[in-house]
């Protein structure tokens, strides 16, 4: 069941330039597990849209299937939403983008949706430079189907039931940079201070923007042998692992100085090691970015922040030289060449 929030608002809520409050950017009440990282990301999307004075009706929210893909119902109620088939959101986004490039496209996907069933679509949306913000709410697990390994789960990371993961992870950020994504960032759902500006940057960016956001699954991938958290308080996690108990968590928040590596405690005490990109790093050099990600991976650290940006890229609609007027507003006289042109074609065939 989903519930709708009361429409009454406090009269003194802060307003943006459009005269809207944050509440005007909200969605339905989330049905995700309490403490789910995805809800924190939704809150960051709301914050970014509020701060950027986005008109919600000029936004299209798209998703595939999975816990992550439920999330668009929980922000921007005034926007159009499209919940597509599993892994097929990039196709819908590509088509919609060509039909009307004037809208802001927010695609919300997960590690299962993007790194397995939809990886072909993900690759080609990047390669074609679709102008969109592509969120991967990455928890390393199939939460909706009770915790199977996803393709971003680390090799050494067991599942909740103690089973070994047999296959190495796909690093979506490295892959995206190699394929030509023009804005690539990684963040952590609990780090609002880092994430909101990254989302704002991605929205403002023209071209394919990937946000790979580590978003802990409190129910299935938050135990001591998971690398989407750090092994910690073994006994506590063992108890968690054997039940489907969902802890009543709070939103995870971290604050740390630029350039430092920090450990963040998750709900149950397990941790993530996060390192920010320092000020000397040049995020416009793809080679450097790939090297940095690889180095940090080797050290067992997860690098977060803006990893790569190419502000000179051409988005899909420019590559294809589409008209300025949205395709979905073109009328028959602009689209149909008519019988005379057909006659010419027929002549050419005889």
């Amino acid at each position: 069941m989903s519930y709708f929030k009361p429409i009454n608002k406090h009269p003194n809520l802060e307003k943006n330039k459009l005269g809207l409050t944050r509440r005007d950017y909200e969605g339905g009440v989330s049905t995700l597990c309490a403490g789910c990282g995805h809800d924190s990301i939704s809150a960051c999307i709301i914050e970014a849209c509020f701060r950027l004075n986005i008109e919600a009706y000029k936004v299209a929210k798209l998703s595939g299937i999975g816990c992550s893909s439920k999330a668009p119902a929980y922000f921007l109620n005034a926007s159009h939403g499209f919940n597509s088939v599993h892994g097929r959101m990039p196709s819908i986004a590509t088509g919609a983008n060509c039909a009307n490039e004037d809208l802001l496209y927010l695609g919300v996907s997960g590690d299962g949706d993007s790194a397995s069933i939809g990886i072909g679509q993900f690759i080609h949306a990047i390669r074609r430079q679709v102008n969109m913000v592509y969120f991967v709410e990455n928890n390393g697990t199939y939460g909706l189907t009770k915790g199977q390994f996803s393709a971003t789960n680390d090799l050494e990371s067991k599942n909740k039931y103690g089973e070994d993961n047999l296959f190495p992870p796909i690093d979506l950020t490295s892959m995206a940079i190699q394929l030509g994504a023009s804005y690539v960032a990684r963040s952590f759902s609990g780090d609002r201070d880092q994430l909101v500006p990254l989302i704002m940057g991605a929205i403002q960016h023209k071209g394919f923007a990937l946000l790979d956001i580590i978003s802990p699954c409190v129910t299935f991938n938050n135990h001591d042998s998971s690398t989407k958290s750090y092994d910690y308080i073994r006994n506590h996690n063992e108890a968690m692992g054997k039940t489907d108990f969902v802890p009543l968590g709070e939103e995870i928040k971290t604050n740390y100085d630029d350039g430092s590596s920090v450990e963040v405690k998750l709900h149950d005490g397990s941790r993530l090691s996060l390192e920010k990109t320092d000020h000397n790093f040049d995020p416009t050099d793809a080679g450097n970015s790939l090297e940095l990600i690889r180095e940090k991976n080797k050290e067992g650290k997860i690098i977060t922040g803006l990893l790569y940006v190419d502000n000179k890229c051409k988005p899909l609609t420019e590559i294809m030289d589409l008209p300025d007027k949205p395709l979905n507003t073109l009328e028959q006289d602009e689209l149909c060449p008519g019988s005379e042109v057909l006659e010419e074609i027929n002549k050419g065939l005889s």
């Binding site: 009706y57 299209a60 919609a96």
Partner: peptide, 27 residues
């Protein structure tokens, strides 16, 4: 409606689930 038609009216959510006549989730 096409997305982006009207500032206040016409937006809806195309769901993968059962829904009512107003595109709202329902069981």
């Amino acid at each position: 409606t096409y997305p982006g038609t009207h500032p206040e009216k016409g937006a809806f959510f195309t769901r993968g689930t059962s829904h009512d006549e107003y595109a709202r989730y329902t069981e």
